[in-house]
Nucleic acid binder design. Structure first.
Lengths: 204, 204
DNA sequence: GTGTGTGAAACTGTTCACAGCT
DNA sequence: AGCTGTGAACAGTTTCACACAC
């Protein structure tokens, strides 16, 4: 049953979940691996195999119950609990992220935003007051922060990383175009549109 | 030599390039696969193998010439030419993208921004006037557009995709949290921070 | 009939280890 | 000595194909 799930499988589960939520909105209550795969551009076998790492959730002859599979995926991914998130960097990207309703809709709560620009410190984004990065250690260490989102320039990213790790943050979503050095046990995910475009140009 | 390069190798090349540009700034003129790998958290063998798909660029006993490798990677990825990019969706994310200097710094030129909100149409972002999506077909089909960046809500993403594909756009960077259906030959890359966070929570 | 779950097979990607070059 | 380039070995991932369940 559950034994060393490949990371690539875990990365696909949120995509399955997203599609299932759309399907649930249409009122469809059951879906086969073939139908879900067609929608996602994946093979039916891959979907069945991926899910089989976690248990048996389907009904032969019928497929998967959409609602049950949604709840199951949410439980597997630990999305049935709240997560505390901070954003470091309140430029255009930091603002867009802080205003993005998708986080709150998925139980990711932005609890603080930091910047080092005196002109921005003290201003607000919605309910949030932008704080000085000098306060990062105090604020973040005192409350349990699960995830840090880095929306700072590349030159500042490693220093911020070291600070949030010192505050026991073990997951970082990094928008700065630089590879971070982190100790084992810290999960870093990179989002870099330039790198993505540079991959696509290879094929054009 | 060059024969069916794995996609995953192509995805790593921009990361190598990014690191090499930082290294070049420090004045270092030569780097070994071991040193580059350490910086990126990759094995030396992987870097040598990846590069070997495209030719022989290193000097045994010395390593790689930083400047030469930069120019080589830029040529491989076709980054030695300009690319025309449009942004569809001028909300907070669309604004942040349109203002991001990283595109222009890498020869990706934002040539038009579209939205369907009358309150936004006609307003400007820097030099760019936000146009109606109704004009997308005219504007985009008349000039050669290489890449479309989608910063629209999920419910609008497929319709926009169909439109830009009709205008011969063959590369799409999609920020909407939905899997797009596209004909063969169209390259779609997804950026979805929620999906990334949902993967990290699995491990926390 | 349809459709899941899964071992086996096929395929893809990574690491090893060493010949050969500087 | 140090380091690349690469076939071979190894590890990981996907697909196949079929027993079994509805």
């Amino acid at each position: 049953m559950t034994q060393s799930v490949p990371d690539i499988v875990v990365r696909r589960l949120p995509v399955y979940l997203q599609a299932l939520l759309h399907i649930a909105e249409t009122g469809q209550s059951t879906i086969s691996s073939r139908e879900l795969g067609k929608r996602l551009g994946a093979s039916p076998a891959q979907i069945r195999k991926d899910l089989s790492y976690f248990g048996e959730f389907g009904r032969p002859g019928l497929g998967y119950d959409v609602g049950y599979l949604i709840r199951t995926l949410e439980r597997i991914l630990q999305l049935d609990q709240d997560w505390q998130v901070i954003i470091v960097g309140a430029g255009a990207l930091g603002h867009a992220l802080a205003n993005y309703p998708g986080f709150g809709a998925n139980r990711f709560h932005i609890v603080a935003v930091f910047d080092n620009d005196p002109a921005r410190i003290g201003t607000t984004i919605g309910d949030l007051v932008i704080r000085s990065v000098d306060q990062l250690a105090q604020v973040a260490c005192e409350s349990r922060i699960d995830i840090a989102i880095l929306a700072v320039p590349a030159r500042a990213a490693q220093a911020v990383t070291d600070q949030v790790i010192a505050c026991n943050v073990r997951a970082i979503l990094n928008y700065a175009p630089i590879t971070l050095t982190t100790p084992p046990g810290v999960h870093v995910t990179y989002i870099d549109p330039i790198a993505r475009l540079q991959t696509m140009t290879y094929y054009l």
